[in-house]
């Protein structure tokens, strides 16, 4: 059980992160990650309960299977003036909830679970809703703040109900 103070800190951190994404402040968002971060959103397959392969696995296709450098590349595309599909801007809303905080396996790290819903309004009438669960490892850094060292995003969709994922979760 972590302290009320830590829980509150994590909650504020995740809310701030969500707002950075809503406001497309990607360089600042990248600043929330450690240099060795791994950001993974595996493809989710509609497989049977008894299937030993499981619904997702590291060796399979993924929406994101990224190092920090990979994330930087994606941000380069988002922020390029030639990212035609991003102009007019997509109106993103990231809702984060069901936050649970516990001590991580390594000292100075927290294991944080949360759920998210990403609502999107795009162009005139386009709308999409994507949702899933997250599991983060947050690391305490020397300046006293928290950084994301690892993130697992498990979408609840086998068929993504959208034409693309033009944001992060």
């Amino acid at each position: 059980m972590t302290s009320l103070e830590t829980h509150f800190e994590v909650q504020a951190f995740l809310a701030y992160e969500a707002r950075l994404l809503d406001e497309e402040r990607y360089p600042e968002w990248l600043g929330l990650f450690t240099e060795d971060a791994h950001y993974w959103a595996p493809g989710v397959e509609n497989r049977g309960r008894s299937d030993k392969e499981g619904t997702y696995a590291p060796s399979r296709m993924a929406y994101f299977d990224d190092t920090l450098d990979d994330l930087r590349r994606r941000v380069t595309r988002f922020t390029a003036p030639t990212a035609w599909a991003e102009d007019p801007a997509t109106r993103h809303l990231h809702v984060v909830s069901n936050i649970e905080v516990e001590d991580g396996e390594t000292a100075g790290e927290l294991l944080v679970r949360s759920v998210f819903v990403n609502y999107r309004g795009q162009g005139d009438v386009d709308a999409a809703t994507l949702y899933g669960r997250r599991e983060d490892v947050l690391r305490r850094v020397p300046d006293g703040g928290l950084r994301i060292a690892r993130r697992l995003v498990v979408l609840r969709h086998a068929v993504l109900p959208a034409k693309n994922i033009n944001t992060f979760f």
Partner: peptide
């Protein structure tokens, strides 16, 4: 996946 998937930096502009 990085280039041609729903989150891919190329495919995103096609849809």
């Amino acid at each position: 996946m990085m280039t041609f998937s729903p989150s891919g930096v190329f495919e995103m502009d096609d849809g």
